[in-house]
Design a protein around this nucleic acid. Structure first.
Lengths: 346, 346
DNA sequence: GAATTCCAATCAAACGGTTGAGCAAACTGC
DNA sequence: GCAGTTTGCTCAACCGTTTGATTGGAATTC
C-alpha cells in the first residue's frame, strides 16, 4: 500500500507525452509534427504511428501551455457597446468569421453592461489573453486605448475614429448619407429633414456631413430646425420625429441616420397619423432584417458592415502594432428601395 | 561584443519575477499575496513594498501561465445560433454579467456563421480554453454535447432542453403562452390563431402546449388551420400571417411565438390592409426594444431572458459536471399591454 | 577507409505562474 | 533557559508545449 500507482480513478487529461509514449517517440516529434514544423523529418511509418496515437487518444493540445510557450494567444478581443444593436451584431459576425478562418478565437465583450471601468477590461484582456483588440463604437475609447497602449496590445478602432489613434477601419458614411439624399431628391423632394445620431460619434458626424453636402449639391437649403439630433435608438428616433412633425412647415421626407432611429421615427409618424410614404418619405442608412419587415418596409442604403468586421480582423492580424491603419471599407453601398419612400406630390 | 546583455531594445513583458525582485522578496510571496492565499503571512511593511512594486511596474499576471498551472481557464464558452436575434443578445448580456461578476471571461461564438461542424468548436473550446460550455438554442446540439462529454467539459443547455442531457435552464414558456391567450380571452376574443416557432425547437413546443392548454381552459376550439408554423423569423411570421389571413374565416386575434415573427406578422397585416388592432389583435411572447416602437407598439408577455443567462452561468459555476441541473427560471413573466391588442368587437 | 553530410530522431531549457514543503528567527509558556 | 509554537518568508517541482542544440548511425563523397 505504500505506493498505489495503479488505481488512478480520475481520467487525466491526455497530454502530448501520452501520445508520444503510445507512438514510441519523443514529444518533440509529436509537437513538430502537429504544428507542421518543416525542420522536422520523420519516416512515413513513424508519422503514421503518431497519427494513430493522436486519433486513438483523441488528443487535443493544451491551449494554455502552447500560449504560454509561444507567448501569443491566437485570440483577438472585441469590445462593443451593445449586443442588441444590429450594427454591432454585424461587426461581430464579420469579425468572427475572419478570426475563425485564421484559427483565432474572438473574445467579444460588451462595454456598458460590465460596470465597465476600463480597468476591468485590462484584467480580462491585458494579461496576454489576446493578441489584439478591436474597439467598436467609442465607448470609453480613450481610456481603453491608453490602457492597452501601455500593455503593448495592438488596438484597432472599428466603425469610428478615436482621437489620437491612427488605426481604424470605417465605412464610407459620408457617401451613404449622400446617396440617401440623392434618392430623395430624385423622387422630387425638397423639404428634407435629417434625424442625426449622437453629436459626439464619429459615424454620426460623417453622415451629417454627407447629408448637408448632398443637400447643397442639390441646391437645397437645410433649415436648422430640419436637423434633429437623436441617438441611434428607436426612442431617440421617435422623439426626433415628433419634433420634426410639430414644425410649422414639417419636412416631407426624412433621412434617419440608422435603422433603429428610423423605426422609432416611423412609430412616431404612426402615432401622429402621418402616413408613410404618402405624407412622409422615410429613408435610412444601414440595414437589418427588420427594416424589410417594418410597416411599411423601409427603404435603406445598405452598408457593408460585416465586411468591415472581417477587414478589421485581417488588418489586425497582418499589420504590426505600430503601423498606422486608416481604412475606409470600399465594398459598394447599395440603395434598397422598399416602400417607405415615394415620389413627392407636386 | 561577445555578450551584449545591456542594450535590450524591446520592453519585455513584466513578470512576477520582476515584481519580486523590485520588492526584494521571493516570487512565492507575490503570487500568494496576489491570489489572496490565506496560508501566507507577511509583515505589513513587506506587503506594502510588493504592492508598490506591482503598481510601479504595472504588473499583470500572465493568464496562460496561471491557467496552465491551475489547469482551469476561468472562462466559460457560450454558443448561440445567431447574434442578430435579440433573445440571444439577452442571454449573452445576462451570462456576461454573471461571468464577469465572478471574474470569468465569456467566450461567445455563433454557430451558424462559422462553417460550424462541431469539430471546429472543440478546437476552439476543447483544449482547456474553457471550464464549461453554455449552449443556447439547439443548433447542432447533439453533436456538441457528445463531443464535449468526451472532453470532460461540463455542458449546460440554455433556453431549451437537449435530448439526453439532464442539464438545462429554461423559461416558463408554457405559462407565457398561457398568459398571452388569457389576455386575448379577457378582451373577448374567441377566434384566436397562433404563429408557432420551428417544430423541432423545445421552446416552441412548450409555447404551443401553453397555447392549446389555455384555449382548452377557455373552452375554445383550435382549428388545425389556426396554428401556422413559422420559424421565429420576421420572414416566417410574415408568411404565416398571410396564410392565416387567407383563410375563409380568419382569426381575429393572433399570438405570435416571438417578437420577430410578430413583426413579420404585422408587416403582413399591413400589406393586406388589415388594421392592427382594429381588425386584428396581435400579441407576442418576449420583448425587444423594437416591440415598443413597432407600428403599432406591440403587446407582449415579457420573459426574464437576461436572468436566464445569469442563472445559467451561476449554475455552471456552482454545480459539478455530473450533477443534473433542471431549472425553470422563476422570475415573473410580465404582460405589457401596448396598442396591438384591443377588445373584440361583438 | 576516413571525412563529411544527411536523416531521424532525442534532449533539455525555457515560458510564467502556483503551491506544498521547508527553515531560520522571533516569540511564547513555564 | 529551553522546548514548542508561530511568523515570515524561501525553495523547487510542476503544469504541457515549443524549439534550438545535439546525437548516433547510415549514406555519400573524395
Amino acid at each position: 500500500m505504500a505506493s498505489s500507482e495503479s488505481a488512478e480513478p480520475v481520467a487525466r487529461r491526455v497530454t502530448m507525452r501520452d501520445v508520444a509514449q503510445l507512438a514510441g517517440v519523443d514529444v518533440a516529434v509529436v509537437s513538430k509534427m502537429l504544428s507542421g514544423d518543416a525542420s522536422l523529418s520523420v519516416r512515413a511509418e513513424t508519422r503514421e504511428r503518431v497519427q494513430r496515437a493522436v486519433a486513438q487518444l483523441d488528443y487535443r493540445p493544451n491551449y494554455a501551455a502552447r500560449s504560454l510557450r509561444r507567448s501569443r494567444a491566437d485570440a483577438f478581443g472585441l469590445i462593443v457597446p451593445d449586443f442588441h444593436n444590429s450594427v454591432y451584431s454585424g461587426i461581430i459576425d464579420g469579425a468572427q468569421e475572419a478570426a475563425h478562418a485564421m484559427n483565432f478565437a474572438l473574445l467579444t465583450v460588451s462595454a456598458d453592461r460590465t460596470g465597465a471601468e476600463g480597468a476591468q477590461f485590462t484584467d480580462l484582456f491585458g494579461n496576454g489573453t489576446i493578441d489584439g483588440l478591436l474597439v467598436a463604437g467609442s465607448a470609453q475609447a480613450d481610456e481603453l486605448v491608453r490602457l492597452f497602449r501601455r500593455s503593448g496590445t495592438p488596438v484597432l478602432s472599428v466603425n469610428g475614429r478615436i482621437p489620437g489613434l491612427d488605426r481604424y477601419v470605417i465605412l464610407d458614411d459620408f457617401s451613404a448619407a449622400q446617396q440617401a439624399v440623392r434618392h430623395l431628391v430624385e423622387l422630387g423632394h425638397t423639404r428634407i429633414g435629417y434625424i442625426s445620431g449622437p453629436r459626439d460619434l464619429d459615424t454620426s458626424s460623417r453622415r451629417l456631413d454627407g447629408f448637408t453636402s448632398a443637400m447643397r449639391e442639390a441646391g437645397l437649403t437645410v433649415p436648422m430646425s430640419y436637423v434633429a439630433h437623436a441617438d441611434y435608438t428607436p426612442r431617440g428616433g421617435y422623439h426626433a420625429m415628433r419634433t420634426l412633425l410639430q414644425l410649422e412647415n414639417p419636412p416631407k421626407a426624412v433621412l434617419a441616420a440608422n435603422v433603429s432611429s428610423a423605426l422609432g421615427a416611423m412609430s412616431a409618424a404612426y402615432a401622429e397619423n402621418v402616413s408613410v410614404p404618402n405624407d412622409l418619405s422615410l429613408i435610412s442608412i444601414h440595414d437589418v432584417d427588420l427594416a424589410e419587415y417594418a410597416s411599411p418596409p423601409l427603404t435603406v442604403v445598405r452598408m457593408p458592415i460585416q465586411e468591415m468586421g472581417r477587414q478589421a480582423v485581417q488588418l489586425l492580424a497582418e499589420k504590426t502594432a505600430s503601423e498606422a491603419i486608416e481604412r475606409v471599407v470600399d465594398a459598394p453601398l447599395e440603395l434598397i428601395e422598399r416602400q417607405s419612400t415615394s415620389r413627392a406630390r407636386t
